[in-house]
């Protein structure tokens, strides 16, 4: 079987809010000094899901694909170090500044071009824009069935079984291959590559495709030109909260002071 993992490189979501800055003239996030971009957390978990299945069923090739700049090689390498077999970077100036539609479009064309893909693993959302639609978009464009927000994924007898997290419960679904799944943190922590695996990853093949490699795609369909959602404004919402720290000699004093505030405010 052949699995694809879609991996995105993003600004570190654990950047402390105080270091998070936006350039409002360019509608762009200003990279926080000294904080390197990372593999989007849920994509690492998608890789974990794919690798667990590979370990179980054996004969599986895993290709990790990233649409991004040259620097996204780091995200690809990380998934290769976890155990994926081959990397594919989709890089072209024409691909830049796209939206979720153009991203899903280029990824789906790449998957089509790979030809023999049985299953596509994505994170439930990229932890920068938090949209949660690229996995579904790929599935729709490739007319594959899709299950989102999985906490457990299994493949056997030509079928994918996914246990999904709902807002108020869980659900287990089954669908025929080829299929797309998006996974969530409930699946568990992604494995941590050993030094030896990191060294091996450096030797694994990473292919590069640009717009010219896609017969079906025109420059007007991708990147900034292909956007269907235009970003008008990116801003940090104003917060007007001024905290009152309740002081006191003891926890008892603090607690009764707080309770009287809550009574005054008619909350209790």
């Amino acid at each position: 079987m052949h699995f694809v993992i879609c991996a995105k490189q993003i600004p570190d979501p654990d950047t402390p809010p105080s270091a998070f800055k936006i350039d409002e003239t360019k509608n762009e996030v200003v990279p926080a000094p000294g904080i390197s971009p990372v593999l989007s957390q849920f994509d690492g978990i998608a890789a974990e899901a794919a690798l667990r299945i590979k370990e179980k069923v054996g004969d599986v090739k895993i290709t990790v694909i990233s649409l991004g700049k040259e620097s996204a090689q780091a995200a690809i390498k990380q998934v290769l170090a976890m155990g994926a077999d081959e990397g594919l970077l989709l890089e072209d100036d024409a691909f830049e500044n796209g939206d979720h539609y153009t991203t899903a479009l280029v990824l789906s064309e790449a998957i089509k071009k790979l030809g023999d893909v049985d299953a596509v693993f994505c994170g439930r959302q990229a932890a920068d824009w938090d949209m949660g639609q690229v996995g579904l978009g790929i599935a729709q464009l490739l007319e594959m069935p899709c299950a989102i927000i999985g906490k457990d994924v299994d493949i056997s007898d030509g079928k994918m079984t996914v246990q999904r997290v709902l807002l108020d419960g869980f659900e287990t679904v089954e669908m025929p291959l080829p299929a797309v799944v998006t996974v969530s943190n409930e699946l568990g922590e992604p494995r941590y590559p050993k030094l030896q695996q990191i060294m091996q990853a450096a030797k694994k093949t990473v292919n590069k495709w640009s717009l010219a490699d896609f017969e079906n795609l025109e420059a007007t369909q991708v990147g900034e030109q292909g956007r269907k959602l235009k970003l008008e404004k990116l801003f940090i919402p104003a917060s007007d909260s001024e905290v009152e720290i309740i002081e006191g000699e003891s926890a008892q004093e603090q607690a009764s002071a707080l309770v009287s505030r809550l009574k005054d405010a008619k909350i209790l």
Binding site: P11, P13, P17, F20, I22, V29, A127, D128, W129, D130, M131, L229, K230, L231, E232, K233, L234, F235, I236, P237
Partner: peptide
């Protein structure tokens, strides 16, 4: 977006 750090307005 950005984990709640920012907001984006789209057309």
């Amino acid at each position: 977006c950005f984990g709640g750090n920012a907001r984006a307005t789209y057309s």
